[in-house]
Write a protein that binds this DNA or RNA. Structure first.
Lengths: 193, 193, 193, 193
DNA sequence: AATGAATGAGTATTCATTCAT
DNA sequence: GATGAATGAATACTCATTCAT
């Protein structure tokens, strides 16, 4: 009974945390503003998170986990990395479209000193990159010499940076089309050949 | 009359600022810690910088300016982008070798909510990317369809992210060789073909 | 749920603020000293006042408001300005007797660079002076040529300065009697004849 | 030789001190701003004044001394207090006209917690008030019962407050004429009858 | 003699966290 | 369980004063 209400509160805390971290950075996201926006008391979130840092860390991990899951799923159900990469990047663009804050959230925190991807997740990412390379090599889609770093760079970092650059309007453009998405995918795959 | 300004102090402030920003992020680099490490009084740095933000901003701009100058110089003195890209990336690796904090400093702040590349420098970067593309296309070194964003992504972002990943030991490796450097250059150029 | 706000604390903050402003001036009344004397944490008063300036301003306005109210009330319920002035000045003396700091507080801040009587209150004061003059002229108690400034000077400024001079012991006397009070009233009225 | 230069510097320090104290209050008049405006080094004024407080105190005493001298002189050379009061108040208005800052300076500091009229000067003022009352009584110009406080209040405080109110535009008027001056004198004398 | 470089104690204010209710 | 009152350490920044030159 009470559970339902609670979940809603926790969910609202999560959303409002992302919102403020994205808009004002980690330092600018105060517990007070997060709680107010979420409609809960300041002290409430300490029942679920030991600190502001833990709250944000857990959120970051869950967002990264979703990407990892997506990639895991793609590797199981697709047979070419063209498909895999294309759909993963598609997922990034969908996230950017539907909830730009989430993409920004990942992007900001990946580079924030206070946060690190967990060892666990780093290991998972490494494994997945390995699988991507293996599949690509097996299919003759990419060069046999391609390293994990190169795969990670083109499949994850490059698309995220592209989206972020667009969001910032760095080159004067602030939006994107499905053609942009396709082009990023192709550019990414092509670089690995 | 009166003491002359101790340039060493200012230099030590600069270095200690970079050190703390790299280690703890902008928020974690307190004036108190910066001054203590630099061996100067807290109030001293306000003789040269109006605020902590200005101090860090000016440092960031000067670091970016050095990269811009290097690229400008290369575009004037080299005739193939292979050379240009190779030497620019070489410069990144030299910076990373000689003073890793400087590279980290740029990397951290480029993604920090509190900082933006100045409009001026953004414009310069855009112009330089244009020149790189033009030179590459003119020489037949890269495809005629390559965009500014793609050039920027591969010539600047990718190498910086590569170095940063290595510095973090993200894939278990924490160092690099001249072969790595060469490989990054070739990978970068190749992606633009 | 949660503790209820301790009105006593706020009251103690108010009192300790007045105390320090009176003793050391606005600049000399530090948040730290105010909070310590009030027995609350430094940050606490920011739950009620946005800044030290707002804290002091609101206190000043409330003290002035009380005087304005008193005068408004007197003008409604008395029919001669002899009574009005007499009782207003009586009020000043009562305040000085009961809580000398309050009178000093008004006196110090009325002349402090950082504070101004609000436009609102200035207007109210002006209106009340007008009414005092009208009543006095109508009753033939004061000359028809008396200006607002003269009325204000004798009814408000002169008594406050008198009390303040006594409090300072400027002429060697540090106390007052009801005779003093009567004399001030009569002197004040007489000057306006 | 050097003396001449020095006197100029000290004079400029005095003027710039008054300027800043009047414009920004005691707290807002920084040594740095005072020295810069005066065209001397910050450390220079510590050769003549042990502290900022001493600098301002000495300036205040000198301004008050001038008023005391004026009044002393008037009491020696005039035979009615009508003349004395008239000319003293005239002096106030001249000061206000010629260098409004000086009047404001006195007015601000007379009410600033950090400053007190010296015991010496207080005694002198008391003596002078006594003489004014004696002369007035002897001439039958004022009532025999007039106290020192009343004399001081009408001859010094009232005119200064009047000028200050006008300078602040408290009643909507920001200037004054020779008629105003005459009226203040007459009002002042009349109150003492 | 005069400068202004350098100091550091002091300022108001913020905010993650605790805990009485 | 949930609240929000209360805390206090930490922050960036100021400025009167000192003293090496």
């Amino acid at each position: 009974m009470a559970r339902i209400i609670d979940e809603g509160k926790i969910q609202r805390i999560r959303e409002s945390t992302i919102e403020f971290v994205v808009q004002n950075g980690y330092g600018g996201a105060s517990i007070s503003s997060i709680a107010t926006r979420a409609g809960v008391a300041e002290g409430y979130l300490y029942r679920f998170y030991r600190s502001k840092h833990e709250l944000v860390t857990k959120l970051l991990y869950s967002k990264i986990a979703r990407i990892i899951e997506k990639l895991e799923d793609l590797l199981k159900t697709r047979s070419t990395i063209k498909e895999v990469v294309n759909e993963l990047i598609g997922e990034f663009f969908i996230m950017a479209e539907e909830s730009p804050e989430k993409i920004k959230f990942i992007h900001v925190l990946m580079h924030d000193y206070n946060f690190q991807v967990s060892d666990d997740q780093r290991q998972q990412i490494q494994d997945l990159c390995k699988q991507v390379v293996q599949m690509g090599v097996a299919n003759g889609e990419i060069g046999s010499h391609i390293t994990l770093e190169e795969a990670y760079g083109m499949v994850v970092i490059y698309p995220l940076e592209f989206i972020n650059l667009r969001m910032k309007g760095f080159f004067g453009i602030g939006t994107w089309t499905s053609e942009d998405q396709l082009r990023v995918s192709e550019f990414s795959i092509n670089a690995l050949k």
